[in-house]
């Protein structure tokens, strides 16, 4: 399984096929698809940021997102924000957690106040309209580079 996933992943098929700025979709040959990746512009002085990625498994072999990296961040890690009884707290999302599982037909969706990739130690502020690359790491697939749109959503 792991081997087939790797072979499939090496045949990256479509990049940015859908036109418009907002809907760059990176689809691997086996159907693993990164359908969204964005971050908010960072306020002056912010040292950390959150990046929101959505990955869909369109019937590729089961896999799991395990991490990410970018030249714009010293460290990146999957994090989960929880707002419980109005108190917001944040913790590392365990790489083994169901939250990051990509079963066939399933998806991992990151959103503000929820699951996100934490960008620890911004090398430069994120400016509205900016685009930068991050590399997504999977348990089985090869790493995939995707563009992140800096947007005020």
């Amino acid at each position: 399984m792991r081997r087939t996933a790797r072979v499939a992943a090496s045949l990256v098929l479509v990049v940015g096929a859908c036109g418009g700025d907002d809907d760059d979709v990176v689809v691997l040959a086996d159907g693993m698809a990164v359908v969204d990746a964005w971050a908010r512009p960072t306020p002056t002085g912010a040292r950390d940021a959150a990046v929101y990625v959505t990955v869909e498994n369109r019937n590729a072999p089961a896999d799991r997102l395990i991490g990410a990296s970018s030249a714009r961040c010293m460290v990146m890690a999957p994090h989960l924000t929880v707002i419980d009884d109005d108190i917001a707290s944040m913790s590392q999302a365990d790489a083994e957690a169901d939250l990051l599982a990509l079963l066939p037909g399933g998806r991992v969706e990151m959103n503000p106040n929820d699951l996100h990739f934490m960008c620890l130690g911004l090398t430069t502020p994120l400016v509205l309209g900016d685009r930068f690359d991050i590399v997504l790491q999977f348990h089985a697939h090869d790493p995939v580079t995707v563009p992140v749109e800096v947007a005020d959503r």
């Binding site: 908010r40 912010a46 944040m90």
Partner: peptide
């Protein structure tokens, strides 16, 4: 706080 990466920037925006 300014080091808050998710909740604070989301709320302030």
């Amino acid at each position: 706080y300014t080091g808050c990466p998710d909740v604070c920037p989301t709320t302030l925006a």
